[in-house]
Computed example of a mutant assay.
Amino acid sequence: MTLLKLLLGLLSGSLAVLADAMHSATDGFSSLLGLVTNGLSDPEPDRDHPYGHHKYEAVGALAIAAFILFTAFEILQAAIGRLSTGLQPLRMDSRELLILL
């Protein structure tokens, strides 16, 4: 779905569709990273570590936050750039709208 949105956003020139593609990519990346970091964690506690060993969830959450911040910065930068240079008309026909639906 992300690749389809990205392709349609690039073909049409729609920043909204490109932002939605980045949102979908962020969701997928966050889910995958959450699964990986939870799998790496060792939940078995001992006397010195009452919450377990190798708690990678915080590192994963930090990476997710950085990716979301990067995505938001890129969308904002593109929007400001388009507003400052003038808005170009969108190139979207009925076929592309149908694919989006």
Rank of each mutant, 00 (worst) to 15 (best):
Leu76Arg: 07
Ala25Val: 08
Leu40Gly: 04
Ser24Glu: 12
Ala61Met: 12
Ser41Glu: 12
Glu74Tyr: 02
Ile99Ser: 06
Ala72His: 08
His54Cys: 08
Ser24Cys: 09
Arg95Thr: 14
Thr85Ser: 10
Glu57Gly: 07
Thr26Ser: 11
Pro45His: 00
Gln77Lys: 14
Lys55Glu: 10
Met1His: 09
Gly34Lys: 13
Leu87His: 06
Leu35Lys: 03
Ala65Gln: 12
Ile68Pro: 00
Ala58Leu: 07
Ser12Arg: 01
Asp27Asn: 14
Ile99Tyr: 08
Ile99Trp: 13
Gly39Met: 04
Arg82Tyr: 06
Gly13Pro: 02
Thr85Gln: 13
Leu100Gly: 01
Ala66Asp: 15
Asp93Ile: 01
Gly86Glu: 03
Met22Val: 10
His49Met: 11
Pro50Phe: 15
Gly13Met: 05
Leu4His: 06
Lys55Thr: 06
Gly9Lys: 00
Ala66Thr: 13
Phe67Ser: 09
Asp42Pro: 07
Lys5Thr: 07
Ser41Ile: 02
Ala79Asp: 02
Thr2Ile: 10
Leu97Glu: 15
Gly39Cys: 04
Gln88Asp: 10
Asp42Gln: 13
Ala63Val: 14
Val59Tyr: 14
Gly86Val: 06
Ala63Asp: 01
Glu44Arg: 15
Leu69Lys: 04
Phe67Ile: 04
Phe29Ala: 08
Leu7Asp: 08
Leu11Gly: 01
Ser24His: 12
Ser14Ala: 14
Thr71Trp: 00
Ile64Arg: 01
Leu33Trp: 03
Phe73Val: 07
Gly52Cys: 07
Leu6Cys: 10
Gly39Gln: 05
Met92Asn: 03
Leu3Arg: 13
Ile99Leu: 15
Ala58Asn: 04
Asp48Ser: 05
Ile80Pro: 06
Pro89Cys: 02
Ser14Tyr: 01
Ala72Leu: 11
Asp46Leu: 09
Leu3His: 08
Ala63Ser: 05
Ser12Phe: 08
Gly52Ala: 02
Lys5Cys: 06
Leu8Val: 12
Ala16Thr: 15
Val59Asn: 09
Leu98Ile: 04
Ile75Asn: 10
Glu44Lys: 11
Met92Gln: 00
Gly34Trp: 14
Ile75Ser: 02
Ala65Trp: 05
Leu33Thr: 08
Leu87Ile: 13
Pro43Gly: 00
Arg95Lys: 10
Arg47Met: 11
His54Pro: 00
Pro45Asn: 05
Leu87Asp: 03
Pro43Glu: 06
Ala61Arg: 08
Thr26Pro: 02
Ala78Asn: 08
Val59Gln: 12
Leu62His: 03
Thr2His: 12
His49Val: 04
Leu35Thr: 13
Leu33Glu: 03
Leu7Cys: 09
Glu44Gly: 11
Ala79Pro: 00
Val36Tyr: 07
Gly81Met: 05
Ile68Phe: 01
Leu101Pro: 05
Leu35Trp: 07
Met22Leu: 15
Pro43Leu: 03
His49Ser: 10
Gly86Pro: 04
Ala72Met: 03
Leu15Met: 12
Ala58Glu: 06
Tyr56Phe: 15
Val36Trp: 07
Ser94Phe: 09
Glu96Thr: 02
Ser94His: 12
Leu6Gly: 06
Ile75Pro: 01
Gly28Ser: 15
Val59Trp: 09
Gly28Ile: 07
Glu74Ile: 08
Leu32Gly: 11
Ala61Leu: 15
Leu83Asp: 06
Pro43Arg: 01
Ala16Val: 12
Ser30Pro: 01
Asp93Met: 06
Ala79Glu: 02
Leu87Val: 11
Leu76Ser: 12
Ile75Leu: 05
Ala21Cys: 12
